[in-house]
Simulated scan of single mutants.
Amino acid sequence: MNVSNLCVLTVTVICMVLAWSEPSKACGSCTCSNGVVMSCPNIVQISLRSSGLTNLSGSAFQNNKIVTNIDLYGNQLVHLPAGLFKATTKLQTLNLRYNLLVDLPDGLFKATTELQTLDLDDNPLVHLPAELFNATTKLENLYLSRVQLDYLPAGLFDAITRIKVMYFWGNKFDHLHAGLFKATTELESLYFVRNQLVDLPDGLFKATTKLETLDLKENQLVHLPVGLFNATTKLRKL
Rank of each mutant, 00 (worst) to 15 (best):
Leu84Tyr: 03
Ala183Val: 08
Glu212Gln: 14
Gln116Asp: 04
Gly227Met: 01
Leu139Asp: 02
Gly107His: 06
Glu212Met: 06
Leu80Val: 00
Gly28Pro: 02
Asp121Ile: 01
Thr209Gln: 03
Thr113Pro: 03
Ile14Trp: 13
Ser33Trp: 07
Leu120Glu: 05
Ser57Leu: 02
Val198Tyr: 13
Tyr143Ile: 05
Asp71Phe: 11
Arg146Val: 03
Leu94Lys: 04
Ser51Gly: 05
Lys234Arg: 13
Glu218Asp: 15
Pro81His: 03
Leu190Ala: 05
Val3Glu: 10
His127Gln: 12
Asn171Pro: 09
Pro105Glu: 00
Glu188Pro: 00
Asn42Arg: 15
Gly170Tyr: 06
Tyr143Gly: 05
Asn64Asp: 07
Thr184Leu: 08
Leu80Ala: 00
His175Met: 12
Asn55Asp: 08
Leu101Val: 01
Thr233Phe: 01
Leu115Val: 08
Gly52Ala: 07
Glu188His: 07
Thr113Asp: 05
Leu190Gly: 05
Leu115Ile: 09
Thr112Arg: 10
Leu94Val: 04
Leu104Arg: 08
His175Pro: 07
Leu128Arg: 08
Thr54Ser: 10
Asn63Ile: 08
Asp122Asn: 11
Asn95Asp: 13
Leu56Asn: 00
Ala60Cys: 01
Thr113Ser: 10
Thr161Ser: 13
Phe168Lys: 04
Asn230Leu: 05
Ala26His: 09
Pro153Asp: 07
Asp121Glu: 03
Cys32Trp: 02
Gly227Gln: 09
Leu100Ile: 01
Asn123Ser: 12
Gly74Pro: 01
Gly52Ser: 09
Glu188Cys: 00
Leu176Met: 10
Pro124Asn: 03
Gly52Cys: 02
Phe181Tyr: 10
Asp119Pro: 00
Asn123Glu: 11
Gly203Tyr: 08
Arg146Ser: 14
Asn141Tyr: 14
Val78Thr: 14
Val11His: 13
Phe181Ser: 07
Cys40Phe: 02
Ser21Gly: 10
Leu228Ala: 04
